[in-house]
């Protein structure tokens, strides 16, 4: 989405950059999904049945515990797409220290999409010093030239494209908002995101720039990690057709992250990592 928006999400990125710079344990080999706090949008209802329009409240936070609040986020880059395809801004919202909140009036039957995006984030990774310490700079390829120490080795700049989505359906589900934009990393059916059911196999297909994308790293985690020992996170990869199948064993909200990293032709980066987060509900059977 537009990078002309206020960069509250980018500021968050900067904070992560600082944090990560100090944490040598997070190495280059770590998946991109470890880069930043997962950013999630959690509607209080995913499926509505009433006869009149209803308000849904949506929490947003960046946190590693699913779904506990950690960091409130700027939501100026969040778009709402109505079932007829029209796009709206969320208007005013509350941004707290731990979470952000907005309310949304669901006044059209069908499936709505909530989509938040960070402006592109650039990290330059390098190795320096006698002990080959792995370090990162919050800078693109050109900016990094001035900032890198003289003995920097194995310099790689990565561009991260991060977005976070969720869906709400009033009455029967529709597919207008699920149509591919053929841009970046996208997720579609066969399983409608508002039709996932505990104990039933769900299947999603991942696309990059409109083409099915193999080897997308998928992580799936059910809600409530704070109150159990086992995170219950499933790590999967899309097959050659970009498909990923799983069977949720818990009802309730789930968190999906999808990550793919590829070489980039951009003058600002050597590699590009696409990171897509989705919150969805696994329903009672």
């Amino acid at each position: 989405m537009s990078s002309a928006q206020p960069h509250s999400l980018a500021r968050l990125g900067k904070r992560f950059a600082k944090k990560i710079g100090l944490t040598a344990a997070l190495t280059l080999s770590a998946a991109g999904t470890a880069l930043a706090h997962p950013l999630w949008l959690l509607p209080h209802e995913f499926n509505l049945s009433g006869e009149e329009s209803e308000w849904v409240t949506v929490d947003a936070s960046a946190s590693h515990t699913v779904f506990n609040y950690d960091k409130g986020v700027g939501l100026d880059n969040v778009s709402i797409i109505a079932p007829d395809g029209s796009k709206q801004r969320i208007g005013s919202y509350f941004k707290g220290h731990r979470r952000s909140v907005f309310d949304l009036e669901i006044d059209q039957t069908g499936t709505w999409k909530l989509a938040g995006a960070r402006p592109p984030v650039f990290f330059t990774h390098y190795v320096a010093g006698k002990r080959n310490a792995e370090k990162r700079l919050f800078a693109d390829k050109q900016e990094a030239q001035a900032k890198l120490p003289k003995d920097a080795r194995d310099v790689v700049t990565k561009q991260y494209m991060v977005s976070s989505i969720s869906y709400i359906t009033w009455q029967a589900p529709t597919n207008t908002v699920l149509k591919l934009k053929n841009k970046g990393l996208e997720l579609v059916g066969p399983t409608h995101p508002n039709d996932v059911v505990r104990g039933e196999e769900a299947e999603f297909q991942l696309f990059l720039d409109g083409k099915p994308q193999a080897n997308v790293e998928i992580e799936l985690t059910p809600h409530g990690t704070k109150y159990r020992d086992d995170r219950k996170m499933q790590k999967l990869k899309t097959d050659t057709n970009g498909m990923v199948k799983f069977t949720p064993d818990l009802a309730g909200p789930w968190y999906l992250s999808a990550y793919i990293e590829l070489n980039s032709n951009s003058p600002r980066a050597d590699k590009i990592g696409h990171l897509l987060y989705m919150t969805f509900e696994s329903q009672l059977p």
Binding site: L48, G50, L284
Partner: peptide, 21 residues
């Protein structure tokens, strides 16, 4: 009573209620 809560008949709503207005 209020159709707003029909969704709480979870399976019925998902399987058929939402398609059968």
């Amino acid at each position: 009573e209020d159709k707003k809560w029909l969704k709480d008949l979870r399976r019925w709503w998902r399987k058929t209620g939402r398609y059968q207005e």
